[in-house]
C-alpha cells in the first residue's frame, strides 16, 4: 500500500463523512459548511488522480463560488429551522426501495466491468497547459456551448430576480 493509496482512503473517508454530516444537518448553514469540506476533499482527490487544473477549479467554483452562493441564499432567506416533520411511511418505503434498486444497479455494473479494473491504477498527471490545449483543440465547440449556457443562465437569473419587483408594484399574481 503506497502513500498515495493511504491518502486516497483518508480523503475518501473524509468526503463520505462530511457529506453524510452535511446531508443530515438541520441547520442549513452547518450543512453548507460541511459540504465545503467535502468539496475541498474532492479537490484533493482530483489532485491525487492527476487532474490539478480540475482540482483548482473545484476549489474555486464548487467550494468557492457555488457554496458561497448557497450560503448567501441561506442567510438571505433566514429560514426558521422548521422543516416539516417528515413524510408518510410510503415515502420512506419508496426511498428504501430506490436505494435498493440503486445498489443492485451498482452491483450489476461491477459485475459487468471490464478487465483490469481491480488492479491499482498507474499514477499520471495531466499538466494544466496540456489539458487546456486539449480542451480547446478537441472541445472548442463544447466550450462555446457551455459559455452560451452560462450566459443564458445569467440572463435567466436576472429575469427571475427582476420579475418580483415588477409584480410587487402591480396587483400581484401567482406568477
Amino acid at each position: 500500500m503506497s502513500v498515495y493509496s493511504i491518502f486516497f482512503y483518508l480523503i475518501a473517508a473524509l468526503m463520505i463523512l462530511s457529506t453524510a454530516l452535511a446531508v443530515t444537518r438541520k441547520n442549513m448553514v452547518h450543512a453548507v459548511l460541511f459540504l465545503v469540506i467535502s468539496f475541498l476533499a474532492s479537490a484533493l482527490l482530483f489532485f491525487l488522480l492527476g487532474a490539478p487544473l480540475l482540482g483548482i477549479l473545484e476549489v474555486v467554483i464548487y467550494a468557492g463560488a457555488i457554496m458561497v452562493l448557497f450560503l448567501f441564499v441561506v442567510m438571505m432567506i433566514r429560514i426558521r429551522a422548521t422543516e416539516g416533520s417528515g413524510f408518510l411511511l410510503w415515502h420512506y418505503l419508496g426511498a428504501g426501495g430506490l436505494s435498493a434498486l440503486y445498489v443492485a444497479a451498482c452491483l450489476l455494473l461491477v459485475r459487468h466491468s471490464g478487465p483490469g479494473t481491480g488492479a491499482p491504477m498507474p499514477a499520471a498527471v495531466a499538466a494544466p497547459a496540456d489539458f487546456g490545449l486539449y480542451l480547446f483543440e478537441r472541445h472548442w465547440l463544447g466550450i462555446e456551448i457551455v459559455s452560451l449556457l452560462l450566459l443564458v443562465a445569467l440572463i435567466g437569473v436576472l429575469h427571475l430576480g427582476l420579475s418580483p419587483a415588477g409584480q410587487r408594484s402591480g396587483k400581484g399574481g401567482p406568477y
Binding site: 415515502h91 419508496g94 430506490l98 440503486y102 443492485a104 444497479a105 455494473l109 459487468h112
Partner: peptide, 21 residues
C-alpha cells in the same frame, strides 16, 4: 415533487438494471 424525483430515479436505475441483465 420528491415523489416524482423518486419515480424518475427508479426509472433510470431500473433501465440500467434491465440493460445490464
Amino acid at each position: 415533487i420528491q415523489a416524482r424525483l423518486m419515480i424518475m430515479f427508479a426509472v433510470v436505475f431500473g433501465l440500467t438494471c434491465i440493460m445490464l441483465i
